[in-house]
Every structure is written in structure tokens, then in C-alpha cells.
Amino acid sequence: METNELTQYKGVWCCAEVRRGALVAAIFELLHAGRKLADQLGEPLCAVLVGNGVKKWTNDLIEAGAEKVYVLDHPALENFVDETHAQALAVAIRQAKPSVFLVSASTAGRSLASRLGVTLNTGAGADVSELSVETLVNGTTNAQVCAVRSTHGGNLFASIVFPKARPIVISVRPMAFPRAEKIAGKTGEIIDIALNPSEWKVRTKFVQFMPEENADLDIGSADKIVAAGRGLGKAEGFGMVRAFAKILGAAVGASRAAVDAGWITYRHQVGLTGRTVRPKLYIALGISGQVQHLAGMGQSETIVAINKDPDCPLMKVASLSVEADLYEFIPLVIEKLKQQKN
């Protein structure tokens, strides 16, 4: 794009997804991150609300800071279908020309951001944890959006800029930003975008959703995680882990060893071949801390390690560590926490 074309794009958009009949809460993290960018760029903060029968959420978005809400409301958007959602958003983006498009780096959001990048011939940054507007990039003085993302399993951080095309498409790492606060009584503009999915080439059919049987908190959006590994020794040990997590209000995580042993399902796996998490508190029980595990949780705010082996890697990086037998120590801690609560 030529410079004069770039400057036609205005507005920071935050993608508000409605799934299984609820507004995905990550939108409030996006609105927080987007507010700062919008103010620095001197552009409006907008939300783009996507789903089926979604109008009732416009006010939540306005109260949380959106000055405009673009509404993409269609039965075809009931469930996340990669190509359908990408086409719907491309229609809205081509029409309204925002300069920045933020979406949560969830399972859906990461595929969506990637498809949108190529569909719109623009640059996309994945799983971004910091956003700023910089004026001194490589000797230029234009204000430009800079996105920081981790690579190499969290061992490197790259600051990325997007000099050539708009909109800048960014998937934002869950839990990297606080949630925007709602202020009652705010007003904003609501803009309906007309969609004709029957004109699109869609070759994907959504068949069904099978909810997770164990309705545990999801580790991707939890601010506390209790995770267990090989040191737990047996599948039954997760009963104790769940009890500990429950009293802390934490989600249950696991190392690869625990998942491979069949003690808990894959969705709980933290690490290189599992998921990346960044909670305020990460408690590792019987996890030695191989680099592959550290890659998935090394950016947690506070790391607590409880292990029989005082010299294992995780005990060395933990902010707080306890050398103990899990089956002796954890029940005692649970008991004391219960006493505290009473």
C-alpha cells in the first residue's frame, strides 16, 4: 500500500465473539489493550460483534469503552467456522477500513487472524503480549503500532512493526491485559453490516459441539493454575490436585508426562506440545521443569514449585518452593486453607 492509502485506515477494532450463547470474556481484555492504542493514535475504539442473535451485547461493549459497535449478526456465524468468519470479517473490514484489528489468540482467534492476514493482504502478528505506539522505529518518526510477541518457547521476545499494509491484524495472548471496566450509561453508535453468506464459497459444515465432560476452568483464561506432573505418581492423585485447585479457585494443569501417562486429558497440558499459559499464580506439583514445560508457563507472574527433589530445574526458577512429599504436604495445606476460609 502507498502511504496515502495507509492513512485512510482509521479505528482500532476489537473482535467480540459470541459462542455457545455467551459473549467471550476476552473482549474486555482487547478493549483494555485497544483503548491505549486508540488514544495514542487519536482514532476511535470500536468493537465488532460477531455471531448469531448478538445484538443484546452491544451495550456491554459500549459500556466497556467501544465508541462504535459494528454488528455481524447471521445464523451462519453461530459457531466458529474458520473460512466463514474470515469472510464475514473481511467484508466489514473492507467496508469500514480500520487501522488495527485485535482478536483474542484463542483456538478460533489464531486461525482467524492468520486467514484474515492473507485474505486482506496485510501483516498479522500472533499471540501478542504487549502493544504500544512507537515514534522512533528504525529512524522513522511516524507513530507506528509495535507488537511484542514471544518466540522460541518464551526464550526470545520480538518487537514487530507493520509498515506496509492495513489493517494491522493482531491476535492478543489471553490474560496478557487486564479487562476494561464498564461504565454504566455510556452511549455509542451501532452499525449493522449486511452479510450475504450464500454468495461466499463455504466448504466447511459445522456438525456439533461436544462440551468438556469435566467442567473444569479452562487453563487458558485462568488467573491461577495448579498443575501436576510425573511426581504425582498415579491418576488418582488428580483427585487431590482438583481439591487443592478448587479451594484456590484455580484451573487444573498438567505436564506432558501426566498427560502421556493417561492421568488427565490433553486439554490440560501446559508446555511446548500443549498450551501456553500466563496466570498470576502457577503452582507446579511434582513437575521437574524441563525446558519444554517452562516454555508453556515461564511467563507466569508467580511460580510456586512443590517437589521431593530440591534440585530440579523448576525449584530453581520458582518464586516460592517447598521440598515436600505431595501426599503428605498438600492435604495439610488444603486443611489450613479450609480453616482460613471458615
Binding site: 459441539f209 468438556e212 487458558g220
Partner: peptide, 8 residues
């Protein structure tokens, strides 16, 4: 998915 499994 974060909350279960989608079939497509």
C-alpha cells in the same frame, strides 16, 4: 476448543 470439542 477451550470449552470442549467442535466437530466439523
Amino acid at each position: 476448543m477451550e470449552d470442549g470439542t467442535d466437530v466439523l
